[in-house]
Amino acid sequence: MTIRKGPSQIIFNIVSYTLLALMSIICVIPFVMILSGSFTDNHTILTEGYSLLPRDFSVEAYKTVFKAPEDILQAYKMTFFYTGLGTFLGLIMITLTAYVISRKEFKYRNTVSFIIYFTSIFGGGTIPWYLMYSQVLNAKGTTFAIWFPALMSPFLVILMRTFIMGSVPDAITESAKIDGAGHVTIFLRIVMPVLGPGLATIGLFLALGYWNDWYRSSMFSTDSSTWELQFYLYDLLNASTAIKQMSQNSSISTAELPTQSVKLAMAVVSTGPVLLFYPFVQKYFVSGITVGAVKG
């Protein structure tokens, strides 16, 4: 970086810094609107629309969201549990699989890749999948049914394979093999150390997948103490839509429906922690790793 800044570098920097700033602004504006909306009085949002700064400042929406703090804390706890366990196990399984199918000496690597990839194109739909977990494995109501189905995805396996093939040249593993290293040694000593960015990416994607999921709670939870956070919030939103759908069926006492500002507050509450977590992963995307260091 310190060598010298030629004119091309300067031009490049001007262009890239400007575009980055522009893009960041475009990307962040709706989020700011949501944030300010969550602090605005509900009536004001409806009559005057969204704004970048809260107009009629109010924390009413957050009071509503945190009305039952123990419930929301429980949902947070469960989500951390699912995310932690799922990401950990998933990362191990994905990395192992990706390692195997990236090995040239593994004769069936294409077959295995295909078997994995095939699942991303063909699927039997929700019903047999649901029956598999609820009837065959008898897992309805357990936490297993919530973390297990998202452990792996063909996309992440294939992405990981690309990372491994890109960051570990064949020559290195070949020479290690000649030195008598087994697969376990190669995997742990040679592949893992240079896989930082790859692990961070896949781990991030897995974690985001777990964090954002509500569907599996919706399908398999029978008790609200096992709900994922997103489902806890999402279900509150759905209550209002659903009750509208049954409008013809009258005399249904409706609980208070979440107002627009409450919906926004929920969005903030559910994404906030991820945004705080992101910088920890970020260090893998900020500074590179030199493969050369391992070679020596």
């Binding site: 919706s218 999402y234 759905n238």
Partner: peptide, 12 residues
């Protein structure tokens, strides 16, 4: 049923 996807879950 919860109000999320209740129609689908009802028939399931």
């Amino acid at each position: 049923s919860t109000w999320t996807d209740f129609q689908q879950k009802y028939s399931l």
